[in-house]
Amino acid sequence: MKTNELNLSTKTLARTTGFFYLLIITGGLMSGMFVRETLIDPTDAAVTLRNIVQNESLFRLGFLGDLIMVLSDVMVSVLFYFLLVNVHRGLAILAAVFRLIQSSVLGANLINLFKPILMIQGADKMSTEQLTQLGIDVMTQLQVFDYGYLISGVFFAINCFLMGVLLYKSADFPKPIGIMIFIAGLGYLFNCMASFIVPSLIDISAVVMLFTAVIAELTFCAYLLIVGVRHRKKLIA
């Protein structure tokens, strides 16, 4: 059975990577869809402020989900390196570097997500005018967090390009997965660039990302957890 520098079988390493990959997806969905989507109204700062004040524990839980996601992303960066280093060491190092940079940007950006918690302390003693301004400030802080997230996405898109090539060349994974991850990088890059350069395309880029990046990553994660690596037929001597 083939092993690696971690002295794990390739299948065990792949499934361990899949576990942390699942934590990334779970943490991201919990914090993004089930917390921020519930509490934040992009069109109404007052409603957003009221929701956060009334559901502070839920907002903190969302922060925890993002923290778990970032920590798991660091693990996945390292595990993918060991999983793919035998395919091409240089590309594996580059892929790990770009994903670790993404994790660093995400980790640093978490302070922008937590800052509203600090800002709302004592909100019950504020005047109406103060609450109005506070709502605007909180909304601005959350927008800064969103754009920080998008900046990290550029590094992740490059990681997807590199990962796509490595997976395509690897004998351990089906070539379609490598193609899907490479295309996912295009989806992420389009979404990030549209948000910064052509905001009118944000809705279109979100749909493109859904049908490229999201499906690709879910498929890849499922493959890692269920299959691990592709079974190789033994050659008959």
Rank of each mutant, 00 (worst) to 15 (best):
S152I: 15
V138L: 01
Q54G: 15
T48L: 05
Y188D: 08
M126G: 04
G228C: 09
T43P: 03
A95E: 01
G135A: 14
F173D: 04
M163I: 09
Q133P: 00
L134P: 03
S205G: 10
G178F: 03
A92K: 15
V85C: 12
Q130G: 00
G27H: 09
F190Q: 10
P199N: 14
F63A: 09
L49C: 14
M119Y: 00
F190A: 12
Y81E: 05
I183A: 07
Y168D: 01
L23P: 02
A222N: 08
N86M: 11
V138T: 01
I181T: 14
A92M: 08
F211M: 07
F196H: 03
E37F: 15
T219R: 03
A237E: 00
S170W: 08
Y223R: 06
I136A: 05
A222V: 13
H88I: 09
S103D: 08
H88Q: 11
I101M: 10
M163Q: 09
D172Y: 14
L210S: 08
T10H: 12
L186N: 06
M30I: 13
M119R: 05
N112F: 14
V227A: 06
L83H: 12
K125F: 15
L67V: 05
T12K: 11
M193D: 00
S127N: 01
V47M: 07
R60I: 03
Y81A: 09
G65L: 02
D124C: 05
A216Q: 08
I236C: 04
L22A: 11
N7C: 10
V78T: 08
T16S: 09
L106S: 02
L79R: 07
G18M: 11
F82I: 13
R89K: 12
P116V: 00
L142K: 02
K2G: 05
A157T: 04
K233P: 02
T43V: 07
